[in-house]
Design a protein around this nucleic acid. Sequence first.
RNA 1: UCGGGGAUCGUUCAAUUGGUAGGACAUCGGGUUUUGGUCCCGGCAAUGGAGGUUCGAGUCCUCCUCCCCGAACCA
Length: 591
Amino acid sequence: MPDRSAAGSSNPGENSGSDFIRDLVAADTASGRFGGRVQTRFPPEPNGYLHIGHAKAICLDFTVAAESGGRCFLRFDDTNPATESPEYVDAIIADVAWLGFEPQEIRFASDYFDQLYDWAELLISRGLAYVDDQDAEAISAGRGGFGQPGTDSPFRDRPVDENLRLFREMAVGQHPQGSRVLRARIDMQHENMQMRDPVMYRIRHQHHYRQGDRWCIYPTYDWAHGQGDAIEGVTHSLCTLEFRDNRALYDWYLEHLPLAELDYAGDRPHQTEFARLELTNTITSKRVLRRLVEDGHVDGWDDPRLPTLRALRRRGYPPAAIRDFCGFIGVARTNSRHAPELLESFVRTELNATAPRRMAVLRPLKLVITNWPTDDDGNPLVEYREAVNNPEDQSAGTRQVPFSGELWIEQDDFRLEAPPKYFRLVPGREVRLRAGYFVRCIDAVTDAGGRVTEVRCTYDPETSSGQAPDGRKVKATIHWVSAAHAVPIEAALYERLFDTELPGERTGDPLDDLHPNSREVCTGVAEPAVTDIAPGQVVQFERLGYFCADNAAAGNAEPGSSAPRLFHRTVGLRDEWANIQKRRQQQGAQR
RNA sequence: UCGGGGAUCGUUCAAUUGGUAGGACAUCGGGUUUUGGUCCCGGCAAUGGAGGUUCGAGUCCUCCUCCCCGAACCA
């Protein structure tokens, strides 16, 4: 095992090392701030599916709380009825659970609409908020620009009574959608743009999936978030870097509200920002993900090429691997982008230890053993060979694999002529069949086009143990499937969805960088024991990689079906031969 | 243009707060091996730049450069 001590354990809630956030929490606990309490929250908006970027935030929010014996709520930031729906709520709850975390409570910002409304009236009555009749364009223009101060709205000094009356009318639908907003009265000259009289409420004559038609006004993120934190008793409100400038507003609202009335009347919550997780060759923008799905570039939100949690699950990524990855990359304030290879290495580490092994051939080539014994009727005998299920885990036991005179082997494992460092089967050479015998190639049958259609070998009965009694060695062990017992499978092989590190950098549109052939489906065969692999389970096809049995495909889900079983390649094995070939190709290109 | 944040091996995270710049991924070489897997050993390789303080600077000070975020009735 590589030393990944910073990664901690895959158990949810265990310490993942130290970082500026954990240092802050430790210092607060030591000083008695918040009465020693620690509480965080994961606050998604239910307008899309969770992706790998969210996983970092989820792991951070939940583990920081758990490490201190604190709590972490799942809170839906559902303040914008235009884009939100209960399907996303259910999906997010399921994805958080799949990742391995259990919120103490599930809350909704929309549950706080009454409190928020009362507080808004309070701010109005104190002259700290006003109704603005300007349209969005005028408000934007009045805000000024970078380096230019804003100008006061003509409605900024509206009398309190009038503000109150108008605001109440807005709430019950007496004003058209978009005609007015409620704004905090802060400072139009403030150097921080967020403080130039931000909008608190906008008029939306829109149905809310939880509140129905009760409201005609909806709070903005800034007006809802910190107050939700305060109501729930959040101590450490962790969010991403782009909210750094919003912190002044977060603090302003809380400082001007009577929080002493709340259950958690100690210190008010504080926001801390950290860098979001980005991956190269990957897009997490909700807008672009939606285009990929809706324009049919992928098969749906759980297409294994996507970075959504549902897709990673379908592809076979173990949640423990994602957690370990998130713990390992740590948390800092530096923008950075990790290579997907790092995540994959955690996936391999986890799967190497846990995935049962089977043999499958993805691009079959017939191998005939010319000296294999037959019965009295001339039919080849069948021998059952014992194969280990997982060399990393003795308790996984062994299985019986049928072996006979006609086998399928991988096309890649035979060449008429061996290039340098090619150790596999060539005419005249001997290799070992995994869990089988040594075989020596004596002949190859080719078709009119010169393509090899059949490899003919002799086997050495003395090598049943996998070793030759005379001590001779082979340089390769290859996998195989008995032709008479082969179970049909389909294997979907995936490449990166985008073949550039920063999709969209070239032309501005990420879709211009879509990998033209990010999925290749092979029609192959597997040993009979693949039928033990349950839908959703990950298996290692020896020498090929880790593959996840699809949940829905007919061959997997319907016991009697004759349809091929469908497997998604989770990730390939490290492949030294591929590296050698790649290097050779690059050297060739340089010359 | 203004405000905020940031800069350490190819990538990424760390450096006991001023004391030998370390790990992982990737890569290269070797060993073990019935998976060219796993595992083990080893190599390569970094403090954005210029000054300053100090016995000593990735860390403190000054200036510069570059990158990210901010002018939604999105979050």
